[in-house]
């Protein structure tokens, strides 16, 4: 397997341009999310969802304007994947979590399972959609569309270990410059999801950005669940296979 790849989104240099949102949509052919003026600073796409795989949050504070591009976290322990009964969700050779739209049957189990509220079903086709970390691009040695477009390199793509080292340096530098509120979010393998493949440098509490402060994988009792699911699937598969055999 290749190295684990991921995103480091450094919000301290984000300029809120939303190039990531558009580049993602252009590459992945994601539909628009409707034309709604939300009167919430410059945010009119609201949140991550089936039709928004990168979302830039704008937080207006006294004298500061924080901007942060959110994305699927590609968790080490990914509940969405754990609960997917069809195998539509799988872990790639880059250790990223991807939905296969040709396999997904739209059951929606993954949606409440995600502790970040990322994965979402699309009204129009019923299937679940989210960031693939541009899996097709990665297979050709290209970086994801959002990271490539990002004008200030706020979104960095690379081997997760390298990104973690770079992020630690960046926090150190910011602290030295007096930006003591700088902190990393999601990089620690000890957190509730075993660390995320997409992590962030924030300038305030996670809640300020609409991020859960202490997310926990919703499938902690996973091994038992998986055994159960395996048994059920076996019964189901036998029946389905029989159908195919009869038709052949």
């Amino acid at each position: 397997m290749a190295e684990r790849m991921g995103f480091f989104t450094d919000t301290s240099i984000c300029i809120g341009c939303k190039a990531c949102e558009v580049a993602c949509k252009e590459w992945n052919d994601v539909p628009d999310d409707g034309f709604v003026f939300r009167a919430t600073s410059y945010d009119n796409t609201g949140a991550l969802g089936a039709d928004t795989w990168r979302h830039v949050a704008f937080i207006e504070q006294d004298g500061r304007w924080l901007m942060s591009s959110d994305v699927c976290k590609h968790c080490t322990h990914a509940a969405c994947l754990d609960v997917c009964p069809t195998g539509a969700l799988f872990r790639t050779e880059f250790d990223t979590v991807v939905v296969q739209s040709d396999v997904c049957n739209g059951c929606g189990y993954c949606v409440p399972a995600c502790p970040y509220g990322v994965i979402d079903r699309r009204e129009r086709d019923g299937r679940a959609w989210k960031c693939t970390l541009c899996y097709d691009r990665l297979r050709g040695g290209l970086e994801p569309a959002c990271a490539k477009a990002c004008p200030t390199d706020s979104i960095r793509f690379g081997p997760l270990d390298e990104l973690r080292a770079r992020a630690a340096e960046r926090v150190e530098r910011l602290h030295a410059d007096g930006v003591t509120e700088a902190r990393l979010y999601g990089e620690s393998p000890d957190n509730g999801v075993g660390g995320t493949g997409a992590f962030f440098l924030l300038l305030d509490e996670p809640e300020t950005y609409g991020l859960p402060p202490d997310p926990v994988v919703t499938t902690r009792d996973l091994p038992a669940m998986w055994r159960w699911a395996g048994g059920a699937a076996l019964a189901l598969a036998a029946g389905v296979a029989a159908c195919f055999l009869r038709r052949t």
Partner: peptide, 9 residues
């Protein structure tokens, strides 16, 4: 659409 949705009004 991709630009309009970002600043629709």
């Amino acid at each position: 659409p991709y630009l309009t949705e970002l600043q629709p009004e």
